[in-house]
Simulated scan of single mutants.
Amino acid sequence: MGDQRDHHPTPLGNWLEDLFNKLFYQPDDGLCKNTMEEEISPQLKVCINGQRVSREEYDQVVTEARRTYNISVQSSRELLASPDVTDQGIGSVAHIQTFVLEDKKTGTQRTQTSLTISVIESSDRGKQLNELMEIILDQ
């Protein structure tokens, strides 16, 4: 069995990291909105900290987070990817990210860590996030 430290990011893991960057870590709201429309499945299934979230609720979570905070990534690492991702470009990927939320009004900062397991599928638009399971905690 291989050591986790030997795991190298896959093209699909890089795609997912780019998706997270466009949703949360860059300042252009138009790019975020376009990304939500193009790269997230309309049938997205989400579970955050054990609570089911609808696609519409997830869109609201992203929009509210962007409106309230400046978000900057501290670290991001792909943990595992399903074995076929390099061949087909679809599959499952697990990531862990640590990021800082800076309140836009008060300047108060807090750090959070998020572990995600994501399922990416192919559609007529290309790759789309289809399922997201997330555990997110304040540090």
Score class of each variant (00 low, 15 high):
M1S: 15
Q4R: 10
R5H: 07
D6Y: 00
D6A: 06
P9M: 14
T10E: 01
L12D: 05
G13W: 13
G13N: 06
G13C: 09
L16Y: 07
E17F: 09
D18V: 06
D18Y: 07
L19C: 04
N21T: 10
L23G: 02
P27Y: 11
D29E: 14
G30N: 10
L31H: 08
L31C: 11
C32D: 07
K33D: 14
N34K: 10
M36C: 03
E38Q: 02
P42L: 11
Q43Y: 10
L44I: 12
K45W: 09
C47P: 00
C47L: 05
C47M: 08
I48P: 01
I48M: 13
I48D: 04
G50A: 10
G50L: 02
G50R: 04
G50S: 05
Q51C: 01
Q51F: 08
V53M: 12
R55T: 14
E57N: 15
D59S: 10
V62K: 04
R66M: 04
R67Q: 07
T68L: 07
S72C: 13
V73Y: 04
S75K: 08
L79K: 12
L79W: 06
L80P: 00
A81R: 00
S82K: 12
V85L: 05
V85T: 11
T86A: 06
G89N: 05
G89V: 12
G91C: 03
V93N: 02
V93D: 00
H95L: 11
H95S: 00
T98Q: 09
F99K: 00
V100G: 05
V100F: 00
D103P: 01
D103V: 08
K104Y: 10
K104F: 08
K105I: 06
T106D: 04
G107F: 03
G107H: 01
T108F: 11
T108D: 13
T108A: 14
T108R: 09
Q109R: 05
Q109F: 01
Q109H: 03
R110G: 01
Q112K: 02
Q112T: 03
Q112Y: 02
T113M: 01
L115P: 07
I117T: 05
S118Q: 10
V119E: 12
E121D: 08
D124Q: 10
G126C: 03
K127N: 03
K127H: 01
N130Q: 12
N130P: 11
E131C: 10
L132N: 09
M133L: 13
M133P: 00
I135N: 06
I136T: 13
D138H: 06
D138Q: 13
Q139C: 15
Q139E: 15
Q139K: 11
